[in-house]
Simulated scan of single mutants.
Amino acid sequence: MARLGHPVAQAAVPSVSRFADGPPYRFEIPSVEGPEVLEAVVAEADRLNVPVARTSQGSGVMMLTDAEITQMARIGAERGIEVNLFLGPRAAWDTGGQAKLTQAVAAAARGNTMVAACVADALRACSLGIRSLLVGDLGVLDVLRRLKEDGTLPAGLVLKTSVLMPLTNAPTAAVYERLGATTVNVGTDLTVPHLAEVRAATRLPIDLYLEVPDDQGGFVRFYEAVEIIRAAAPVYLKMGLRNAPNIYPSGGHLGVIPKDLGRERVRRAALVQRLIEQLDPELKRPDGGPAADLGVPVI
């Protein structure tokens, strides 16, 4: 394009921040709903040589048995992968009506009883070795921060904010950090300049869907990957799937669908990895090994 007189402009000042082990980006595979899906994801990552650093789950701790959580923790610990579990319940599954009309409050905790249930999920998950939790409510985030500070929850526990908690500007990112977030999901439609603004306001890793589920916009942003990394580093590239069923809450009734979706998310990550290496070979590739800032399970 430059040779033809139409150069592509750089959209933002590059971030100099990096993850603890050096790379500017990592891959996250979401919707890893149980141990069988996690096993399928790590096997596919091995087959395609994709350095998966984190998996996340959306159905919630309350939808997993102790044995399932323990097995997921064991796999994560053996592989040096962060295993992130969602806290529940949530407004979208409750008896209220507002969450049926808008996703803006879908993950909110309705009433103190629901906040207490999220805390119960957190305590149970941590007791079984999990060290990374997905939070969908601002008040719950602050409560968990206080429980980390007083020693009730592990000091190194990762608190990841959900994409269902709106984060579309720099001041909001700063608020989330003050309330205890350790990694933040941002709006799926933020431009590269928007991401640069968020990066300037917080030291936390940014989590961004590079392929976005249909109910969150359905964008496929593969060719933006390099510019996103440059502007937002350190950034988790989340590989959702467009044109895929919503599987929450997951379970055996869905058969092989969650495993097939997990494998395809890894394949999408492999496609993105190839693009990154072609478009900017100097970007440090994650090695996929354990790092000090990952919430790897403890067994």
Rank of each mutant, 00 (worst) to 15 (best):
R3E: 10
G5V: 11
P7H: 11
P14T: 06
S15I: 01
V16E: 08
S17V: 01
E28R: 08
E33L: 14
E33K: 12
G34M: 05
E36Q: 13
V37I: 15
L38N: 01
A43R: 11
E44D: 01
A45K: 04
R47G: 01
L48A: 08
V52S: 01
A53S: 15
R54Y: 03
R54Q: 09
G58Q: 06
S59T: 15
V61Y: 07
D66Y: 10
E68F: 06
I69L: 15
T70N: 05
Q71I: 00
A73C: 13
R74Q: 14
G80V: 12
G88T: 12
G88H: 05
G88K: 05
P89H: 13
T95G: 10
T95H: 14
A99C: 11
K100L: 15
K100D: 14
A104S: 10
A107L: 15
A108K: 08
G111P: 13
V119M: 12
V119D: 09
D121P: 01
A122V: 10
L123D: 09
L123I: 14
C126L: 07
C126I: 02
D137L: 04
D142C: 03
V143L: 08
G151W: 00
G156R: 12
L159F: 08
V163W: 00
V163S: 08
M165E: 00
L167R: 01
L167V: 15
T168N: 14
A170Q: 09
A170G: 07
P171K: 06
T172L: 10
V175F: 11
V175S: 00
Y176K: 02
Y176T: 04
E177D: 08
R178E: 13
L179W: 15
L190H: 03
L195F: 00
A196C: 05
R199I: 00
A200H: 05
E227C: 01
A231C: 02
A233I: 02
A233P: 00
P234Y: 02
L237F: 09
G240C: 11
L241N: 05
A244V: 08
N246C: 11
N246Q: 13
S250D: 12
S250H: 15
S250W: 14
G252C: 06
L254I: 13
K259D: 09
G262N: 07
R263C: 07
V266T: 05
R268Y: 10
A269D: 06
R274L: 07
R274G: 03
E277T: 08
L279S: 07
L279D: 11
R285T: 09
P290D: 04
A291G: 12
A291L: 09
D293G: 04
D293T: 04
D293F: 10
V296Y: 03
I299A: 13
